[in-house]
Design a protein around this nucleic acid. Structure first.
Length: 273
DNA sequence: AATCCGCACAACCGCAGGAGT
DNA sequence: AACTCCTGCGGTTGTGCGGAT
């Protein structure tokens, strides 16, 4: 596998995009699509590298981009998916129509992560106070607990306490995050329980059905028969359309694979090679 | 009023991996 | 098999803005 040669920086513009550049890029892609990002800037008359054009299009100019603040449901979904998928921003983004991986990454690093850090601090303090320690995640293998930091953060109970006191939307645009902090979406139903629920099988079915309960009507998984059950993975694979219905772009089955990834923990152990 | 500081987010960078030759 | 090209991903940085001091 060779590495991509560094973009020839000579003569190429960097930094923020101007309106004119945006218009050039939009006009070109509308007319020709983007079969080759590397060649695109030359053909479109842009002094940018293809990578920069691609990023600008995907993260900002794409017509199906949803602007504005994340809703509470979206944030809960991000937190929830991050618990399961880790920093796989593209997979998480595939579950949030109109949102980009970059956007989700930003929102995570700006406030969601802080919320979890606060939560962990609270958890840590409360654990210190406990005389009897709970091996909450002891059922997980070492790989599971260390390979992906997100899998170790399931204490939503304290998270919600933190949310209710610390989070404020960042811009003047309206966001449902400010309202109804007491009214939790179904995705957080399990917050009422303690760590032990993550040890038994009910976690996954509960977790996955929780995701499904969100306002994600466009979630293809909802239309896949038996998606909530690992035994139906084959059905999922057979029935899943790999085109993202929201962007019209071929997702290369990214939704499918994120679903599979989320179910994989339920599969019977495979023999080691 | 000036300065400092933290936040939000757009953009960049390096790497991994698939596809083609 | 080995190499290059290209795309996509995740981590990180740069910068503008608003609030605090």
């Amino acid at each position: 596998m060779g590495r991509a040669p560094c973009c020839e920086k000579m003569g190429l513009k960097r930094g923020p995009w101007s309106h004119e550049e945006d218009q050039l890029l939009i006009a070109y892609i509308k007319q020709h699509g983007h079969p080759n990002w590397r060649a695109l800037p030359k053909h479109a008359g842009l002094l940018r590298c293809g990578k920069s054009c691609r990023l600008r299009w995907i993260n900002y100019l794409r017509p199906d981009i949803k602007r504005g603040n994340f809703t509470k449901e979206e944030e809960d979904t991000i937190i929830h998916l991050h618990e399961m998928l880790g920093n796989r921003w593209s997979l998480i983004a595939a579950k949030l129509p109109g949102r980009t991986d970059n956007e989700i990454k930003n929102i995570w690093h700006t406030h969601l992560k802080k919320r979890l850090e606060n939560k962990e601090t609270i958890t840590h303090i409360s654990k210190k106070r406990q005389t009897k320690s709970k091996p909450a995640l002891s059922a997980q293998s070492p790989e599971e607990t260390t390979g992906s930091q997100c899998l170790v953060q399931p204490d939503h109970n304290s998270l919600d306490k933190v949310r209710s006191v610390s989070y404020q939307p960042s811009t003047s645009e309206s966001s449902s995050i400010t309202e109804a902090t007491n009214e939790l979406p179904s995705v957080t139903k399990h917050e009422e329980t303690n760590h032990e629920m993550f040890l038994d099988d009910s976690f996954w079915s509960e977790t996955l059905s929780g995701v499904g309960d969100n306002n994600m009507e466009s979630d293809p998984a909802k239309s896949i028969p038996g998606v909530e059950f690992p035994t139906s993975l084959l059905t999922m694979i057979e029935n899943t359309d790999t085109r993202n219905p929201n962007t019209g772009c071929n997702m290369d089955g990214i939704d499918l694979w994120s679903d599979i990834f989320m179910h994989i923990e339920e599969l019977p152990e495979l023999p080691e090679f």
